[in-house]
Simulated scan of single mutants.
Amino acid sequence: MNNENVFFNPGDAIASSHDFKEARRSAQIIKADKPTAGQIVIAQNAKSGKYAIYFADKARDDKHGEPYKITEKL
């Protein structure tokens, strides 16, 4: 597990879930459907605890996003 902190705009999420296993399944499906789309990350919102799936290149700075903790990179 990665402890890297990163900021994302919640509106940029590809998908989200309260369950990590469900989020991981969704991320694997997305990656399989678009293998050349870039790196996908599963991140947990530091405030709500909800998991979200993002393209890694959608990361923001701390003034334009909410804090997330990266839990997995695909």
Results as ranks from 00 to 15, higher is better:
residue 52 A to Y: 01
residue 44 Q to K: 12
residue 51 Y to S: 01
residue 4 E to V: 13
residue 9 N to H: 14
residue 39 Q to F: 02
residue 72 E to Y: 03
residue 23 A to K: 00
residue 56 A to F: 08
residue 53 I to E: 03
residue 27 A to R: 03
residue 2 N to M: 14
residue 17 S to W: 12
residue 47 K to P: 00
residue 56 A to W: 08
residue 35 P to K: 03
residue 26 S to T: 06
residue 22 E to D: 12
residue 47 K to L: 08
residue 5 N to I: 15
residue 14 I to C: 09
residue 12 D to P: 06
residue 31 K to Y: 07
residue 26 S to C: 10
residue 24 R to F: 13
residue 27 A to C: 11
residue 74 L to M: 10
residue 62 D to F: 06
residue 71 T to C: 07
residue 58 K to E: 04
residue 44 Q to D: 01
residue 20 F to D: 09
residue 30 I to C: 11
residue 61 D to W: 05
residue 27 A to S: 10
residue 18 H to F: 13
residue 36 T to V: 07
residue 32 A to S: 13
residue 26 S to E: 14
residue 19 D to V: 14
residue 8 F to N: 01
residue 31 K to H: 11
residue 69 K to R: 11
residue 46 A to S: 08
residue 1 M to Y: 14
residue 20 F to R: 11
residue 63 K to V: 07
residue 28 Q to M: 14
residue 32 A to N: 12
residue 14 I to D: 07
residue 39 Q to N: 05
residue 18 H to Q: 12
residue 44 Q to R: 13
residue 62 D to R: 10
residue 21 K to R: 13
residue 65 G to A: 06
residue 3 N to D: 13
residue 74 L to A: 04
residue 19 D to C: 09
residue 37 A to W: 09
residue 29 I to Q: 11
residue 17 S to P: 05
residue 59 A to M: 12
residue 5 N to R: 15
residue 11 G to F: 13
residue 35 P to F: 05
residue 57 D to M: 09
residue 54 Y to T: 01
residue 65 G to Y: 08
residue 14 I to F: 10
residue 6 V to Y: 02
residue 48 S to F: 06
residue 33 D to V: 04
residue 64 H to S: 06
residue 32 A to E: 09
residue 53 I to R: 00
residue 73 K to I: 09
residue 72 E to I: 06
residue 12 D to R: 14
residue 65 G to E: 09
residue 49 G to C: 04
residue 23 A to V: 05
residue 63 K to W: 02
residue 20 F to T: 07
residue 52 A to V: 04
residue 49 G to F: 10
residue 26 S to I: 05
residue 41 V to D: 02
residue 24 R to T: 04
residue 19 D to T: 15
residue 10 P to H: 14
residue 45 N to M: 07
residue 9 N to W: 14
residue 34 K to R: 13
residue 52 A to F: 03
residue 47 K to M: 07
residue 17 S to K: 08
residue 46 A to N: 11
residue 49 G to W: 08
residue 66 E to P: 01
residue 29 I to H: 12
residue 57 D to C: 06
residue 46 A to E: 10
residue 3 N to L: 15
residue 3 N to C: 10
residue 52 A to N: 02
residue 55 F to S: 03
residue 43 A to S: 08
residue 74 L to Q: 03
residue 47 K to A: 04
